[in-house]
Design a protein around this nucleic acid. Structure first.
Lengths: 195, 195
DNA sequence: GTCTATACAAAGATAGAC
DNA sequence: GTCTATCTTTGTATAGAC
């Protein structure tokens, strides 16, 4: 975004921003190029093709999400609050970056029928990060034996929040709803069998 | 699907099936035409354009989902089971129709950046149906004053189930997880404040 | 109403110069 | 590494005949 940003960064910024707000298929290469003030040949020299650019932009975004989320976890006090920090992180993440229509990863997964190996791997990495970290955080709760199952349910709730934003629900409302459901789930863990 | 189906029905069948499995943007008109064994001009005579065809296919599918869901509600016994019938309905719906990658409505909403008025209205109708019927069913639970809030949370959970399928989770697993979370939510309603 | 053939537009990618 | 100019493919839609 800086005036003196490298060509590569300008391309990544433009691709991420447009993919987040308009979607990938709705964003022709020309539009990315115009936004980035770069010529076609340069894009292809750097990233090979459109999907390569998108993939790199996603990787950078995932890394930033990872950082933001970890910060929120670190700031939270107590096992339950650390689990619920994902919702604080989502709010912060959406404030920091160009606001996406809902979730860039799910969005691209939804609109890309046959992703290449690199893109597919990157899309899966998002789900893996969610599952892994939520699993780790859930292991600090009572009944660590159910950590993986709880993590799956938390990913579901988190995914539901994002889906509600796509449905048109205000983001803050959806996030608050999701946090409430998750808190209820955590309250049930350890106090009763949640088979 | 029948050999003697009308041209119109063949087009709707092909469009629905391909949109559900491949996505809309990944499905060129030519492929729909070949599947339906129909010529281009016929499609445009009937539906105006590609989006018109997709819109009509979605309306038909929403109507079938409506029916399947209502059947499952009618079969269920007791207020809580009637609310949870949405998960039984989802299983049945996916078995009846051509299996979709996740949710045809959310999928098309995700990949269609600027839908025309008719398509947009049809996509919203899906969310409206969910909210309305879940609200009605939730009104039969203890604390009917919270029916609308509970309905919103149930739509979130249901949407999360669909999103998990997009993430690669087995559909039956995702549905079972969603039902469990929803059951927990219902158990909390009336017994405690779920602010 | 339906077909064949074709027009028109959009989009991804490359050639060749600097 | 980057640009200008252009090629090729793909995809939506229509013209005109039957």
């Amino acid at each position: 975004m800086e005036p003196q940003a490298t060509v590569r960064d300008r391309l990544l910024d433009a691709a991420e921003d447009l993919a987040a707000t308009q979607g990938v298929t709705a964003t022709p290469v020309d539009v990315i190029l115009e936004r980035a003030q770069v010529s076609p040949a340069t894009l292809y020299a750097h990233f090979g093709n459109k999907e390569g650019l998108i993939t790199q932009a996603l990787r950078r975004r995932l890394s930033r999400w990872d950082t933001t989320w970890q910060e929120c976890v670190d700031e939270a006090e107590g096992p339950e609050e650390k689990v619920l920090a994902i919702f604080t992180a989502l709010t912060r993440h959406r404030r920091n970056l160009s606001p996406s229509r809902w979730c860039v990863f799910l969005g691209i997964a939804a609109e890309t029928a046959r992703p290449g190996p690199d893109l597919e791997e990157t899309l899966l990495a998002d789900t893996r990060l969610l599952t892994r970290r939520l699993g780790e955080l859930a292991a600090a709760l009572p009944d660590p034996g159910r950590a993986d199952a709880v993590a799956q349910q938390l990913v579901l709730i988190y995914t539901g929040v994002l889906g509600m934003i796509l449905r048109g629900t205000d983001a803050d409302t959806a996030i608050a709803d999701g946090r409430r459901i998750a808190a209820m789930l955590l309250a049930a863990v350890g106090t009763q069998d949640v088979s």
